[in-house]
């Protein structure tokens, strides 16, 4: 790992509940489950103080929300896949880190707040990730939301604030992004044994993204995020943000060892378990044409200015 990085490695994992609730329904789900298991062991063998999750299935509206309830206990049921079963959880949250992250985000101009409420509905993606990656709560966790209106600059700054908070507290972390690759699911119920990626186009784009990940080209993926959003993302939110947050938190470059541990269909969407570890080697030389940003300045009110 890089000498000065507080992040030991990063993981990219899918949000769907099948690897947790029905891993035997399909060999692909079992592969994803095995990849989660491998990551769990690697986390256990690391000297991480914290698992920090950025979840695309936790949308926020009022700024950026950070889970801070020390003992987060509930039984979660997915809106679509409720018939697969319930997901009881008991997560140990690093409250001190949550508050530090909130403070770091505010220092960079973001509107952020912690949430500490019994019964708060932790999202499916976070529940799946933490249940599989940290089942015994060996390491405390923290979860940050994905603001539905936030775009690139806000997300980049949110990722940098995570790094700030880790440095400030002297903690080593494994960061986990919870997101599909292509996210178009089948709109009917399917036999799990017949699951496949929704379309050839989605599959081809997923394969291309996985090539980049395998080569450790995280900043290249970050720069490609707008294109990825247009090509293979159902337009639920304004942008595809996971690579922005991951690159901003881990370091905006291509110096990573990438490992694709599994890539499978999850009801048509692309689910991958990927590890990125900071390294000294670099691959890729895409020209980076999007500016970096350190501080969020807020909306520019372009529409209003156009009237004067």
């Amino acid at each position: 790992m890089s000498e000065d990085s507080p992040i030991l490695f990063g993981l990219y994992v899918p949000p769907h509940p099948q690897p947790l609730l029905s891993p035997d329904a399909n060999s692909g789900y079992a592969n994803l489950r095995a990849a989660f298991e491998k990551c769990r062991k690697r986390i256990e063998e690391s000297d991480a103080d914290l698992i920090l999750v950025y979840s695309t299935t936790w949308p926020s509206v009022v700024g950026h929300q950070i889970q801070a309830l020390k003992e987060s206990i509930w039984t979660h049921v997915d809106d679509d896949f409720h018939y697969l079963g319930s997901m009881p959880y008991n997560f140990h949250i690093d409250t001190e880190f949550a508050h530090e992250y909130c403070s770091a985000a505010e220092k960079r101009g973001l509107h952020a707040r912690t949430v500490e409420y019994e019964g708060f509905p932790i999202d499916t993606g976070s529940v799946v990730a933490l249940s599989l990656l940290n089942p015994d709560n060996r390491i405390p966790a923290c979860i940050v939301s994905s603001n539905m209106y936030a775009n690139r600059s806000e997300t980049i700054v949110l990722g940098k604030a995570a790094n700030d908070a880790l440095v400030s507290q002297g903690k080593k972390a494994v960061v986990v992004v919870v997101s599909s690759l292509s996210n178009r699911m089948f709109t009917e119920h399917i036999d799990p044994s017949e699951d496949r990626i929704h379309s050839s186009k989605d599959n081809e784009w997923n394969e291309k993204i996985l090539e980049f990940f395998a080569d450790g080209r995280l900043e290249d993926l970050s720069q490609l995020s707008r294109e990825i959003h247009g090509q293979i993302r159902v337009q639920k939110v304004v942008a595809y943000k996971p690579a922005w947050w991951l690159a901003a938190s881990m370091g905006q470059h291509n110096n990573y060892l990438g490992e694709v541990l599994a890539y499978e269909a999850l009801h048509g969407s692309g689910g991958a378990v990927i590890q990125l570890t900071p390294s000294s080697g670099s691959f890729g030389d895409k020209e980076f044409d999007e500016d970096d940003v350190e501080y969020y300045q807020g909306d520019r009110n372009v529409l209003n200015k156009g009237n004067h």
């Binding site: 679509d80 949430v115 708060f120 509905p121 009917e188 119920h189």
Partner: peptide, 25 residues
């Protein structure tokens, strides 16, 4: 929000606590 069809509540009773994920305060 469901993406795989339209779903209907199908049990006679539900008792729990609802916490708004956006406005939990």
């Amino acid at each position: 929000q469901t993406y795989i069809g339209t779903h209907f509540l199908g049990l006679p009773e539900f008792k729990s606590k609802s916490v708004d994920p956006v406005f939990p305060n």
